Simulated scan of single mutants.
Amino acid sequence: MADATFERSRLATVFGGSGFVGRHIVRALVRRGWRVRVAVRRPELAFFLQPIGGVGQIEAVQANLRYPASIAAALEGAEMAVNATGVKAETGAQTFRAVHVDGAQALARAARAADVETFALVSGIGADPNSWSPYVASKGLGEDATRAEFPAATILRPSVVFGPEDDFFNRFGALARFLPVIPLFAGGKARLQPVYVGDLAQAAAAALAGEAKPATVYELGGPDVMTLREAAEAVLRATDRHRLLVGLPFAPSYMIASTTSFAAKVTLGRFPKLLTTSRDQIDLLAFDAVVSNEAEAEGRTLTGLGIRPQAVDAIIPSYLVRFRKTGQYETQRSA
């Protein structure tokens, strides 16, 4: 039986709420005392979210971006909604166009039809509809489609997102455990501004609560600007390992990406995911994922939303400890 307190509280729908970013948005909304409807393709895989909230506070429902009726049902009675859906690689019907563009348009259109008060889209720094990168272009086109259907939507553009379930620092940690040499694609020179997933989630909650400027693009980055090489070095410090870091130019990087992607395809996914890289991932390293000077000056940042961003070195040791030689039982050598 649902708690009567939550029955009377505001309702927010989180599309993609079981994903890496989405689950933290759910947590941030729950902490505000709101009811949360988690809209996902497979609700049975979202049951792990139930303990985050009180009885009846979180509800998982089935929704598919290709079926407008399911989207409308997920938005019924909701006052707020956020689009946290996304794919890093295209598989089957889950293409960049289908999810980032057509899906974004369908969600924004349905939110407007459902009289949702506030709507937010989680995009990415550097999103550009005119980009030569299919992934980056799809993000930019998705933003355009969202604004066309829901003009007051808040767009959140995070840099590389990190946290316990990330596929960034965890990947370096796993590679350091198994390989004596770690390749740094695109030379390891790409500049990043990693943002903690909990801070991104707070920004999404603030946007839904009306604490962000409507029809505004926020660029979200942490306090540290670092190169890909420096990110790998941070992982080595956190895991107390010593590995050779080798920067690879774009040409061999693309060659490795093509080879590993092909291997994954012909082996039906049996090729180690840890060693699989896509060309789209290499493409992203051609851009610096950092907050622009304009966004800083205009307050379109985490601090502009009243959120103090957390540093990489303050967070990653807590979840990369498993990559140390003896896990959390390894004593730290004094400097």
Rank of each mutant, 00 (worst) to 15 (best):
Y67L: 10
D166P: 10
S278N: 05
R229Y: 11
T260H: 08
W34L: 09
G269Y: 12
G56W: 05
L284M: 15
T85D: 06
G33Q: 03
T85N: 11
F287P: 01
P43E: 01
R32H: 04
L179A: 15
A93N: 03
E296F: 14
I25A: 01
A69K: 10
A46I: 04
G299C: 08
R109C: 03
S159Q: 03
V122L: 08
W34A: 03
A120L: 06
R171E: 12
G103D: 10
L285G: 11
T91C: 06
V14A: 06
A137S: 14
D166V: 04
Y319Q: 11
R237I: 05
V161T: 10
L305S: 04
K88P: 03
G210D: 13
E233F: 09
T301I: 01
P158I: 02
S261C: 08
G142C: 12
N83F: 10
G140I: 13
A2K: 12
R66L: 13
E294N: 12
E143T: 14
L175R: 06
F6L: 11
L65G: 10
R41W: 05
H100P: 00
G198N: 02
L236R: 02
F47T: 09
L320E: 13
T326D: 13
H242K: 14
W34C: 01
V82F: 08
R10Y: 06
F262Q: 09
I71M: 07
I282N: 02
R270V: 05
A98P: 00
R66E: 13
A4E: 14
L175M: 15
V21G: 00
E149K: 08
V122E: 04
W132N: 14
Q332V: 12
G210W: 15
L302T: 15
V116I: 05
I71R: 05
F119Y: 15
L65E: 12
L244G: 09
D199C: 01
L192Q: 14
L200T: 12
R237Q: 13
I71W: 11
V101C: 02
R31W: 00
R10P: 09
A203G: 07
E296I: 15
I25S: 01
F250I: 03
S70P: 04
F168N: 14
M226F: 05
S9C: 07
S131N: 06
A215V: 13
V61W: 03
A212F: 08
G140W: 06
G22L: 09
R35D: 04
R23S: 11
T239M: 07
G327D: 00
Q62T: 11
R229S: 12
F96S: 12
R8P: 07
L285W: 11
D313V: 09
V195D: 10
A212Q: 11
S18G: 02
T118V: 01
T146A: 12
A335F: 10
G17F: 00
T95R: 01
R279P: 04
P158G: 06
R237Y: 07
P252H: 14
A257G: 07
T276M: 09
L245G: 00
R8I: 14
A311N: 02
V55I: 12
E143Y: 12
